[in-house]
Amino acid sequence: MWAYVGRRLLLAIPTLVGASIIVFAMVHLAPGDPMSAVMPVDASQADIEAARRAYGFDQPLPVQYFRWLVRVVQGDLGKSIATRRPVLQDVYDALKNSLVLALSASLLSFGIGIGLGLLAAFRQGRVLDKLMSAVAIVGVSVPHYWAGIILIIFFSVQLNWLPAMGASAEGGAVEYLRHMALPTIALALIPLGVLTRVVRSAALDILAQEFVLALRAKGLGRAAVFAHVVKNAAPQILTVLGLQFGFQLGGSVLVETVFSWPGTGYLMNLAIFQRDLPVLQGVILVLATFFVLLNLAVDLMQTLVDPRIARH
């Protein structure tokens, strides 16, 4: 088992290197000169060249990549072109906020989604099942920035119950939680819908298998059969959980922008508009690393719950 974990960790390294090359290339091959955004309009050609040299933009790309990679590995993601603050600090703060949001949205959507999906499967074809399916379809088809705006209009503007913008750390924990409520709900909608549907269909597939009849034939009751179904569905559900968590962590640009939640999505949005290359690179790289690690964690967990996957 531990040898397996070790090998999987080693295998993650080339994936990470690949991700870093893509991140680097993507940003450098994008059209537009990063210097134009930060230099004064009337800057002389010599000034621009000097700044270019200072940032290392005059070197050939492979050299730029290796220099960048060496610094990245040492934890130095460079300085923001726009704010001149260290990128690592900005990304770290943003990641913390996004992580909090992704965790709370996951808790909400995973709990409810898995529950609804199982309930729907065990009541297949009845009213409850149809109701759940309708909820799931709404969940996956409503664009979440639109849901976010509706939530703001209703809860913040009309009812004035919850704040619509930002993440306030000054007001203490309660204030922070109040700020989290609406973006959490907006972010949870899609994974909730996806999970309800995936869990329902996974459980139905399993319920249709002969061994479920065999379990009933040996006298097991509903709770025991339920446990078997859940254990059989676990690997498949786990995969979807990993993916959805990843999406919530990195894919929340729209929600974070709508709610001005200072997370990675918000930061990325800002970096794109300001052509702030180091920040953009930093955010994407850190998110890519998170994705790889998340996949690794899901894979390892799967070998724990599914005996059919070889553990060597």
């Binding site: 065999a214 034939a217 040996k218 006298g219 719950v305």
Partner: peptide, 20 residues
Amino acid sequence: RGRVASLVFQEPITALDPVY
């Protein structure tokens, strides 16, 4: 079921739970 009368299936690979 399983106490007074038990069932043995044709295909044990589908009639046994694969993850137990």
